[in-house]
Amino acid sequence: MGESGFSKRPDQLVISARYIWHRVMTELSSEAKRLYLSYFWWILEPCLMIGVFYIIFGMVFERGGEGFVSFLILGVTAWLWFAHTVAKSTLSIRSQQGLMRQVHVAKYVFPFSAVLFGLFKHFFVLIVLISLLVYLNEPSITWFFYILIFLVQLLFITAVSTVIAAVVPFVPDLSKIVPPMLQMTMFLSGVFYPQSMIPAQYVPHFRYNPMAGLIMEYRKVMLEYQLPDFVYLGKVALYSGILLAFGLWVLNRFNHVYPRLAD
């Protein structure tokens, strides 16, 4: 790679941040305007998923037990947040070839927009579903740790989204693998079954999947009134941080290469 002596505009970060914000706000409002039920879809989707799991596992297989709805709320909201954001990030850079060829733009703008978009949607869902949790359960001081787990999950989602968005333009086939991978990961994440159903010797392996571990932690602090596993959360945060740093390094290293990749 030849030396490029362009002086970077000092406010590149500011430009990117402003753009991400307005891009996401526009996208949120335009998505709502396009559909008749607009924002209700955001709530409806997790509710439908919770309903299906409740009918199949709670009523047909009778595996639910008491508090199964709260149990599902925590699993489904955390899962959908992850799955939606990763799915949206996958092509976030690759689909912007036209834009990237016309203006110089820091490439992290695209996955970060997807993350912010997902975050807003998740907030919206949480407001409704957490109020339902409050209604169904006795609040406890351990509920505060929800925020900690939430932040760790946000870091994890950002890291995964950034890396996938950064790699897909080089290996477009990967975008085909992401949806089935997400599907499989959902079944491995204990969205609709409790840890007690997994044979004890497999639990540590099960928790290598951060989504499985995080969903367990949510349920621990919200439903079992226990403290979270701080060491586990620390590890997830650390590995996510390393992954995110790697993703940003790739984006920065190939910042001027992405516009040159064939469609």
Binding site: M1, G2, S4, G5, F6, S7, R101, H256, V257, P259
Partner: peptide, 16 residues
């Protein structure tokens, strides 16, 4: 595109 800093040259340099 080189002048706009969208892509960078493989050889040589651009000084802005």
């Amino acid at each position: 595109r080189v002048l706009a800093n969208i892509i960078s040259p493989d050889k040589g340099f651009v000084q802005n």
